[in-house]
Structures are given as structure tokens and as C-alpha cells.
């Protein structure tokens, strides 16, 4: 006997779907932030000065090795002490953006390094300026293969958004939590949230695979 009330589930579904808009917004905005942040970091990691490269590398390693949750706490509790008070949503998006920019910087770096060295040499032999070689020859080869990788990071970020609930962002899971604790009925809201995540992830993964096939051609 499964204690699942379909009528109750149907009655709370609209609320949850509405809340998933917050989840999607958080994903999109923090992903955009991570794309930009990753660019800054990869430039730092490839800087001509060791005094820049080394600290950037260390910070990236540190952020990648520590939990997003505690990093969010840090931003949420520490920043106001410095007079910076941001809304929970902005704090959360900033935290996720910073956290994932450390991964995305690595994706950019790998993409650049995957272009064969001979391509640089050929460009030099044809007397291209370094910037022109980058824009016309290297980037067009480096970008397509990393697009699916980036998309997978976006999906990973999507699945990390429930952590924002811990700093009081009312996203999908927090909404389910609130609904559940009102009547102490957890089965329907939690299961629905799981199913919504599963459905969206599966659709997104299928899109990435499609994209991968398209790019491979």
C-alpha cells in the first residue's frame, strides 16, 4: 500500500511548477556568471606572471575542494559584516557562479590545449598575428568540443540549486519543504520534486546528447 494521494499531488503541482521557475532562473543566472568568471580565471591561470598564475591556481583549487554549502554560508553570514547586504537569491547565484567558474575555467583551459600545437605553428608560419591566430584559428577549433561539457556543467548546477534553500532562497525544494511541513505530508511534495528534477535532467541530458551528435558531424 503506497501512501500517495494523487489528488493532493495534483493540487500542489502548480505551486511547485511555479517555484521551479526560481530554480531555473537561479541556474541560468549563475551559469552565465560562471561562464564569465571562468574566463577571468583562465586568463589568470595563463597570465605571463607567476605572481598572478600561482595565487589564481591556489584559489581555484581551494574553492573546488570545499563544499558549496559552506561557501554559501560564508557569503551569507560574512558579507553583511562588511556592509554588503545582498538578497539571498543574489548571494546564492554569486556563490554558485564563483564555485562553478573554477570548474569552467578548467574546461576552457582544456579546450585551448586540445587544439594541436601544429595549428599554432602553422599560423605562425603563415605570419598571423597572435591575436588573429587565436580568434581565427584556435578558438573556432577549441569552442565546439567544449559546448557539451559546458552544458553538462549547467545541468550539474541545476541539480545544485536546492542547496540555495539553506540560505533561505525559496526555490523548488524549499517550496516543497514549506508545503510538506504545513500538514506534515512529505510523500507527495518530495516525490514530485524528485520527479520534476528527474524529468528536467533527462530532457536536458537528451538535448546535450543531440547537441553532441550535431557537433560531431
Amino acid at each position: 500500500m503506497i501512501p500517495f494521494d494523487f489528488d493532493y499531488a495534483r493540487s500542489i503541482l502548480p505551486l511547485l511548477l511555479e517555484a521551479s521557475l526560481v530554480t531555473i532562473a537561479a541556474t541560468v543566472v549563475s551559469f552565465a556568471a560562471a561562464l564569465a568568471g571562468g574566463l577571468v580565471l583562465v586568463l589568470g591561470m595563463r597570465a605571463p606572471f607567476a605572481a598572478v598564475r600561482w595565487p589564481v591556481w591556489a584559489v581555484v583549487q581551494f574553492i573546488r575542494s570545499t563544499p558549496l554549502l559552506v561557501q554559501l554560508y560564508f557569503l551569507f553570514f560574512v558579507l553583511p559584516g562588511f556592509g554588503i547586504s545582498l538578497s539571498p537569491f543574489v548571494t546564492g547565484v554569486a556563490g554558485m557562479g564563483i564555485h562553478y567558474s573554477c570548474y569552467i575555467a578548467e574546461v576552457y583551459r582544456a579546450g585551448l590545449e586540445s587544439v594541436h600545437k601544429g595549428q599554432w605553428e602553422a599560423a605562425t608560419a603563415l605570419n598571423y598575428r597572435k591575436s588573429a591566430a587565436m580568434v581565427q584559428i584556435i578558438l573556432p577549433q577549441a569552442i565546439p568540443p567544449i559546448i557539451p561539457v559546458l552544458a553538462n556543467y549547467m545541468i550539474a548546477m541545476f541539480k545544485d540549486t536546492p542547496i540555495l534553500a539553506s540560505i533561505t532562497v525559496i526555490e523548488l525544494m524549499q517550496t516543497a519543504n514549506i508545503i510538506a511541513s504545513e500538514k506534515f505530508l512529505y510523500v507527495e511534495p518530495m516525490t514530485l520534486v524528485g520527479l520534476i528534477f528527474l524529468a528536467m535532467s533527462l530532457v536536458a541530458s537528451a538535448c546535450v546528447r543531440l547537441l553532441q551528435g550535431r557537433l560531431a558531424r
Binding site: 501512501p3 541545476f158 541539480k159 545544485d160 540549486t161 536546492p162 542547496i163 534553500a165 525544494m173 519543504n177 510538506a180 512529505y186 510523500v187 518530495m190 516525490t191 520534486v193 524528485g194 528534477f197 528527474l198 535532467s201 533527462l202 541530458s205
Partner: peptide, 21 residues
């Protein structure tokens, strides 16, 4: 697919809050 597709926190909460039911 199921365990990769659902956010870990949701899995945790589901096991913590729903399994008792």
C-alpha cells in the same frame, strides 16, 4: 539515470522525510 538525474539534496530529503511514511 534516476540517481544522477535527481538533485542529491532532494534524494537526501526524500530518504529522510518520505521513507518513514
Amino acid at each position: 539515470e534516476v540517481f544522477r538525474g535527481v538533485a542529491l539534496l532532494v534524494q537526501l530529503f526524500w530518504m529522510f522525510f518520505v521513507l518513514p511514511f
